[in-house]
């Protein structure tokens, strides 16, 4: 089964005693805040869970896999995530 925002909100409401209405908003705010922080170019470090960081990728030569034609892969800015030590230890 896949975990979605609804499962997270339900679980958090169950353990904290907060209403699902509130926890739904908090789950939403949690991911929205991480997203806008990353969009502003700042990394997000959640001790134990992991770090979201930004990587600048320079352009490099590539190929269209369908046609085999060479084409340039443009410079991009991407998000990477690395699990924290606590989480890696659990796996």
């Amino acid at each position: 089964m896949t975990v979605t925002k609804l499962e997270i909100a339900t679980e958090v409401a169950y353990v904290t005693g907060l209403t699902v209405r509130d926890t739904k908003r908090l789950v939403e705010a949690f991911f929205d805040t991480i997203r806008s922080t990353l969009a502003s170019g700042e990394e997000v470090k959640l001790s134990g869970f992991g770090n979201f960081s930004i990587r600048e990728k320079t352009s490099r030569p590539g190929r269209n896999p369908k046609t085999g034609e060479p084409s340039e892969i443009i410079a991009r800015r991407v998000v990477t995530w690395r699990a924290g030590q606590t989480l890696r230890g659990k796996c």
């Binding site: 975990v3 997270i8 907060l18 991911f31 997203r35 959640l46 134990g48 659990k90």
Partner: peptide, 26 residues
């Protein structure tokens, strides 16, 4: 409290091999 429980829950779900899918986030 909610944020900490959320992170624990996400970690445990992942460690158990479950997939977490958040639309628009990843």
């Amino acid at each position: 409290m909610a944020t900490r429980h959320m992170l624990d829950y996400l970690s445990d779900a992942l460690a158990e091999g479950e997939r977490i899918e958040i639309r628009g986030f990843g």
